[in-house]
Simulated assay, not measured.
Amino acid sequence: MAITNKEINAAFSAEVTALPGGEHLNSCYSCGACSGACPVSQAIPDFDPRRIIHMIRLGLKEQLLTSELVWYCSNCRSCVFVCPQDVRFAEIVSALRKLALDQGLLTEQDLLDQGKSAWVDRDQCVSCLTCVRVCPWRIPVIDEGGRAYIDPKECRACGICPAECPVQAINLNESADERLIAACGTDR
């Protein structure tokens, strides 16, 4: 597939490096250590940290930020530990996610619909604090109304809180990456 001038945003790389989390982008020399250590890229071949960095450098802003690629990252930080240049790819992905949301290329409702964030059914929540205790990232909080709340921008969609909620008040739609992984399992 050819890339046209209309698809290229020459300022995209500079925009990413100006964001908190994106400042180490230019240290990358494409060695591929991040891609080799990434458990997500093992399950979903379309997700390749090195390719995402290349897309940033090429200026493919809209193509990257409107795709699901940056939402596949589980933020396990395996890439951070193996990078010889301290690029911190997981932080770059967080910056890209924030950019997509801030610029309206994706909405919080899109995240919920695509299975990239869990949400709480307030009528079912009994404020037991199970979600608050089990979340390794401390995303669920108890709001002023005394019910659990999950910020869609922060949720990692790991599935822990929906699985652990004793009253099944927390929901998480099936995501595209789950469908891809399921399809990979049926091809064997």
Rank of each mutant, 00 (worst) to 15 (best):
A95Q: 08
E164Y: 07
R138S: 15
K61F: 01
G185D: 10
A37I: 03
S41H: 13
G104C: 02
G159V: 10
Q63E: 15
Q63M: 12
C161N: 01
Y149I: 03
N171L: 10
G185S: 10
E62H: 13
R122Y: 12
F81V: 12
I8E: 00
L101S: 02
A43P: 00
R156V: 09
A163F: 06
Q124I: 15
D143L: 01
S74L: 12
I3F: 06
C28I: 04
K61L: 00
A100F: 07
V134I: 12
Q85H: 15
M55W: 11
W137H: 12
G32W: 00
T186K: 12
E164P: 01
A11G: 01
R188A: 11
C38K: 06
I139L: 08
N171I: 05
R88L: 14
S30Y: 08
N5Y: 08
A2I: 09
D102M: 05
I160P: 01
A43H: 10
L106E: 07
D113M: 04
V126T: 15
E91A: 14
C184R: 14
A95C: 06
G104V: 09
E154F: 03
I181L: 01
A182M: 08
S41L: 04
P162F: 09
V82Y: 05
C184F: 13
N171A: 06
E68N: 13
D48E: 14
S27K: 11
A148W: 07
L60N: 11
I3N: 05
V40G: 01
C184Q: 15
A11Y: 07
D102V: 06
L19H: 00
Q124C: 09
L105W: 14
M55I: 01
G115L: 00
C83R: 06
S41T: 15
R57T: 02
E174R: 13
L65I: 09
K61R: 11
C131E: 07
H24C: 09
G145K: 11
L172V: 02
S127V: 05
R50G: 03
I160W: 07
D110Q: 05
A183S: 11
S13I: 05
R138I: 09
V134S: 15
I44A: 07
H24W: 11
T107P: 07
P136I: 08
I92R: 04
Q114L: 12
I170D: 05
C155D: 06
E7I: 01
C128H: 12
A182L: 08
V126W: 11
S78K: 11
A118Y: 06
L65G: 05
E23W: 01
N75D: 13
G145C: 04
N171Y: 12
G145S: 15
I53A: 02
P39D: 04
E91C: 09
D151H: 04
L69G: 04
C155W: 10
A182T: 09
I160D: 04
